[in-house]
């Protein structure tokens, strides 16, 4: 890393795309998309498992998908996560204008929304486990459900820790060519979490409600 990379960027300066101005940034960008391709396959195996194990044969104890899921909570969670995706777009918008303060502010809003989502998911799981007898070990449907939705929740938690770490680590440094790519790929990760959630609310909750 050269010392140029650590020079603080301020509004009014170039470059236009600080996340791809260095070779290191370009490599991070490519490497991260490669990782996302792998994540797609990983989640597909969990979705495949869930789709194979959500029928009545594997639902031997506790309620099935149609009785279990409440669409109100899922809808609220969906809107919250979708909005957090938009707020991280705002953060990257301000990064491209080299406005560090506003970028941190919008990332802070993203983190707050992400925490709300995570809180609601924990509440949902708590209700299922305490009041519905739907646990990880109750039946194959339970295992497949918690493996898929819980793994997504784990990704949300990891994304939150990642963004908070970046925000704290760079709070006094400001934006530079060294950390701009880091912020950029963290936002890509956050969008990817939302991509997975779109399929979860469609395949798990909506199709579960339809009994199909």
């Amino acid at each position: 890393m050269s010392s140029d990379q650590l020079q603080r960027l301020k509004p009014g300066q170039s470059p236009h795309e600080p996340e791809k101005a260095t070779l290191e940034g370009k490599n991070k960008f490519l490497g991260f998309w490669f990782f996302l391709g792998g994540e797609t396959v990983l989640f597909a195996s969990l979705f495949g498992t869930y789709l194979a194990l959500n029928g009545p044969e594997s639902n031997t104890s506790g309620p099935g998908p149609a009785e279990l899921f409440g669409l109100e909570l899922v809808f609220i969670m969906t809107v919250i996560l979708l909005t957090s995706s938009l707020t991280s777009v705002y953060a990257i918008y301000h990064m491209k204008n080299l406005d560090f303060g506003k970028m941190q502010l919008w990332l802070g809003i993203t983190v707050a929304l992400g925490l709300t989502f995570l809180g609601l998911e924990i509440y949902e799981f708590y209700e299922y486990i305490m009041h519905e007898e739907h646990t990880f070990t109750s039946d194959a449907f339970g295992s497949a459900f918690y493996a898929l939705v819980g793994f997504h929740g784990g990704h949300v938690l990891f994304g939150l820790l990642w963004i908070v770490t970046l925000m704290v680590r760079n709070s006094k440094r400001g934006l530079n060519l060294y950390n701009a790519p880091k912020y950029y790929i963290a936002s890509l990760y956050w969008h990817f979490i939302d991509v997975v959630w779109v399929f979860i609310f469609t395949v798990v909750y909506l199709m579960g409600k339809l009994g199909g």
């Binding site: 490519l30 998309w33 996302l36 396959v41 597909a44």
Partner: peptide, 21 residues
């Protein structure tokens, strides 16, 4: 390249889901 990576991932993902289902 990102599109290549992602679409390769989606291709394998579809095969995975199809096989399991």
């Amino acid at each position: 390249l990102p599109a290549l990576f992602l679409y390769s991932g989606i291709f394998v993902a579809l095969l995975t889901v199809l096989a399991m289902v």
